[in-house]
Design a protein around this nucleic acid. Structure first.
Lengths: 261, 261
DNA sequence: GAGTGGTCTAGACCACCCC
DNA sequence: GGGTGGTCTAGACCACTCT
């Protein structure tokens, strides 16, 4: 492997900008300019300490800054690396089209097969109880629901968690309350039960993950999550399901079509 | 002001969990449980040093952790505060409906007036040149564009930046290339020019902001941005504009309607 | 002036990885 | 074993805010 040689200027202690930010700025610039491409290793803290002429804790301050920006990841015993960009899934606005359900594919599986990745679902939990108030509101005040929780993986990497809430009046005693919902997923079952789907409303937002989400999605520091709260309506405009998903922002671009009329 | 009294356990140096994470976990729990409501002040670093029985730098490690999670904000000379939740704008999926343009309101103004906030636009820059490759691709290979850059504010707080790219063949010599596009904004002008709009495609993603974005949107640490790349198509399916927006994730929930058919 | 957070030092010991 | 990052200490000085 060729050595990466980069000119780093010593920190100017008399400058108004703090030293650790000067360090972050210089390293950020080198990363952006391509001197350190994704996946490559930065100089060790010891080397940076020498190059910048500061104490190790100051170097670590600069590194912490870039880590919180999501630019780099640290690996104990190995080094600090420019964060490689994982493959991105593009969620098309037709991903809930009926033709996918009719083909026996739940939305997640349909998308995965399009990009040639191996999809998987684990941590499936089915319970029943009372939904959060916000969900109950979307369901028109229903407080008795079946709760389906699961995690989605692509090529073994967790990318998304999802919790579905379906009114018990609809789901009780059906495959929706089973661990395996069968081909086409929840939405195919709902249609079989006579709840012909008309449209979905998705509420999209972003935030930093909780500790638990960071663990479940195996997120490095500095990576936000995208949350999508989806409500499914049948042709009578009755909400039949709310699905609360948390996605790694590294793995997703959401695509929507909006009419101009 | 009543004193907030909270029981904090000293750090256990023999535990496998590092001290600064024990500190972060305890404080996070107190914040979540409501002991420290949004806007309230945490104990000073000196007090925390005493309560946890560790050096100040260890306390600061715990505080840095919560700051990177977006839970708290530090203010020099004043203290560390639980981050207050700013008002959220809900962007409805009909925000580009023609009736808003016909009423002489650009999308941003229409939304603001709905929530009773005072909208403003500043940092308007109009230039021309070559768009980024990704934008050129969306515009069908057009490389000669008018570039409109601006920043949106609500009640004086910046919430969003936007850069529009319009093919020069369409925009040159029109009000679209003026600083003030007039009532109804770019889209109203495009329709007057005969480019009747049919639909938009939006690509939504999230990431941590760059330094410059943090400054322009006045974002505290630990707050991601939501990016929306919108392409406007006319009734002949010709792309007539691409708009690249960067929004504070604190300020937005995006709402989309997706058909099930 | 007293109290707050912001920055920085010069060490130390540890856990982990690779040779 | 040698190099890496992870954690921690006990001080120091500074900039800022409030009274």
């Amino acid at each position: 492997m060729a050595e990466v040689v980069v000119a780093l200027r010593a920190v100017d202690a008399s400058a108004p900008e703090p030293g650790f930010l000067q360090i972050a700025r210089q390293l950020r610039h080198e990363i952006r300019s391509g001197a350190y491409p994704p996946g490559s290793k930065l100089p060790s803290e010891t080397e940076l300490t020498r190059a910048f002429g500061v104490a190790r804790m100051t170097v670590r301050g600069g590194i912490a800054e870039l880590r919180s920006e999501g630019l780099i990841v640290s690996e104990q015993g190995k080094g600090v690396f420019v964060r490689p960009r994982p493959p991105v899934r593009r969620l098309a606005s037709d991903r809930f089209a009926r033709r996918h359900r009719d083909a026996g594919q739940a939305a997640f599986l349909a998308e995965a097969s399009q990009v040639g990745a191996t999809p998987a679902v684990d941590q499936v939990q089915v319970t029943s109880g009372r939904p959060p108030d916000s969900v109950a509101g979307l369901l028109g005040g229903v407080t008795d629901v079946v709760v389906r929780s699961r995690r989605y993986l692509l090529d073994g990497q967790p990318v998304e968690t999802a919790v579905s809430y379906i009114p018990k009046a609809i789901a009780a005693g059906t495959k929706i309350a089973d661990d395996d919902t069968g081909p086409g997923g929840i939405y195919a079952r709902l249609e079989e039960l006579g709840h012909r789907l008309d449209h979905f409303v998705e509420e999209v937002a972003a935030r930093m993950p909780t500790q638990e989400e960071r663990f479940r999605l195996q997120l490095p520091a500095g990576v936000p999550v995208v949350t999508v709260l989806r409500t499914a309506y049948d042709v009578h405009d009755v909400p039949v399901e709310v699905c609360d998903t948390v996605k790694s922002s590294q793995s997703y671009i959401l695509e929507y079509r909006v009419d101009a009329t």
